[in-house]
Amino acid sequence: MSRRATLLPLLALLALLAGCGERPEPAGGDPNRLTVYSGRAEDLVGPLFERFERSTGVDVEVRYGDSAELAATIGEEGENSPADVFFAQDAGALGAVAETGRLARLPEPLLGKVDSRFRDPGGRWVGVSGRARVVAYDKRRLSGRELPRSVFDFADPRWKGRIGFPPTNASFQAFVSGMRLAVGDARTKAWLEGIAANEPKLLENNVQTLEAIARGEFEVGLVNHYYLYELRAERPDLPVENHFLAPGDPGSLVNVAGLGVLHDGPAAQRFADYLLSVEGQRFFATDTAEYPLLAGVRPDDALRPLEDIKGPDIPLGRLGQELRSTVELIRDAGLTP
């Protein structure tokens, strides 16, 4: 490499060093600054942060990452965490951080805006948007009417070799926990064994599951509802459709993305308030194809309304304690290593 060619990147590096030398501090009492650890992708929620900044004048610094890895990071940082708010993709990651005692109790009026199913019983985190479990299917080979109304029917040998799902994914495990709380361990175990006997394809995540359906590897997948809309943004002709199960069926659990506050202060409160305001909730309805959780804000027309899905009547805050036994049950059925 010539001398000049080596010099240029190093100069660029120096410029970067100068620009990024300062480390983010938690805002704490400063009402105009906020540091957020976001387990939700920048593509989805970046505009939401911008709208919040515009409407409140608070300067927001966002670290994007994987929800579980950010939860682990907060655990390792302990008291030294620069994060004021943890904005997570699922209730499980929030529960894990709550367990470390790092989350402040949220104020009653804020918690009161959301159905008690969708928040921590201890008031340490609150859901801000909902996602439903659905059955995604290959519409070239099946029509919605041919699909069962209960997830239990997929244990029938008729579905042998036709199913796929991500058994290690947090959303799948939450759904199995929900099933255990709704119908008990014995029936859940029998269902898992039935499913395992149907030789399902096991994938890493929801998107891989949908793509495998599109490739024709199998016909139905157990996933969250909104990944289909993400994929369709790029491939409108994706031959996959969502099927909603019967109201109250364990297969239609509604889970949430939500937030917890690590360093309490006026800016953190304003952020939480904003996400659960009509404006914030409309964003989830229109921009991320999720379910708003604030009463009175309607989801997108393409979605089945939350009242009609119902899902099993289970507080999400309880799923965390069930996780370990759920993982064991899934493993004993031979679905995970």
Partner: peptide, 28 residues
Amino acid sequence: PVTLLLRPIGFETLATEVWSATSVSAFS
């Protein structure tokens, strides 16, 4: 993985750009 957790906030590399697009299935 190291870049994601230890980078300064707002510091983007090509690898983080790939990640942030694939995390919402925007393969294009």
